Amino acid sequence: MTTNTKNPTIILIAGYWLGAWAWDEVCGHLTAAGRRTLPLTLPGLDASDPRRASRTLDDQVAAVEQAIAEASAAGADSVVIVAHSGANAPVSLVLDRDPGRVSRVVWVDSGPVTSGTAFAPDAPAELVELPLPPFDELAEHASIDGLTAEMLERFRERAVPEPGPVVRQRVELTDEARWAVPTTLVCTSISSAQVRELADGGHPLFAEVANLSDVELIDLPTGHWPMWSRPDALAGIIADAASSSME
Score class of each variant (00 low, 15 high):
G75N: 10
D58E: 14
R97Q: 13
G19E: 10
A20C: 06
V94P: 04
N211G: 04
D145V: 08
H29W: 09
R230G: 05
S72R: 14
T148S: 15
D136R: 05
E162L: 12
R156F: 03
V128E: 13
S213I: 14
Q66G: 08
I10C: 07
D240Y: 05
P112Y: 04
I218N: 03
A89W: 14
P99S: 13
T9F: 04
M246I: 06
P221I: 02
E162K: 07
L217A: 02
T114E: 13
S229T: 09
V102E: 15
W107D: 00
A67E: 00
A14T: 12
S85Q: 12
V195A: 01
P134W: 05
E129L: 12
F206P: 01
L95W: 03
S243G: 14
D214A: 15
T222L: 00
Q194A: 15
A32Q: 08
A69T: 13
V61L: 14
G111M: 07
V215C: 10
S192Y: 02
N211H: 13
A71R: 09
D59M: 12
D232V: 13
W107E: 00
P204V: 00
P39W: 07
A241I: 11
L234P: 02
T184Q: 01
L138G: 03
L212N: 10
A89K: 01
M151S: 03
A76Q: 07
H224W: 02
A177W: 01
P124D: 02
L95H: 03
A123Y: 01
V171W: 03
T188C: 15
A89D: 03
V61Y: 12
R36D: 05
G164D: 07
I237Q: 11
K6D: 14
S243H: 09
V128G: 02
N88L: 13
M1W: 12
A32F: 04
R170L: 06
V160G: 03
V160W: 06
I238M: 12
S243K: 10
S72T: 10
T37A: 09
Q66H: 09
H84P: 08
I237C: 15
D77Q: 07
H224I: 03
E157P: 03
W21K: 01
S92M: 05
R55N: 14
S245G: 00
E162S: 12
H141S: 07
L18A: 08
T148C: 12
W107V: 00
R170D: 01
I11V: 07
E172C: 06
D77M: 11
W107C: 00
R230I: 06
S78N: 05
A149S: 03
G116M: 08
V160R: 09
A22K: 01
C187R: 00
S85C: 08
A83W: 12
A199Y: 00
P8W: 10
A207E: 12
C27F: 02
L147R: 11
A32W: 01
Q66C: 09
Q169S: 09
T2F: 15
E162H: 05
L38R: 08
D240W: 08
L95I: 06
F155P: 02
V82E: 11
P231K: 06
V160K: 04
S110H: 06
D136V: 04
E172T: 09
S213K: 13
A83G: 09
T31R: 12
G34M: 15
P39G: 10
A235I: 09
I144S: 07
P8F: 04
A149E: 06
A20Q: 13
H203W: 01
L38K: 08
T56F: 14
D49W: 07
V166R: 06
G223P: 04
I10E: 02
L198E: 00
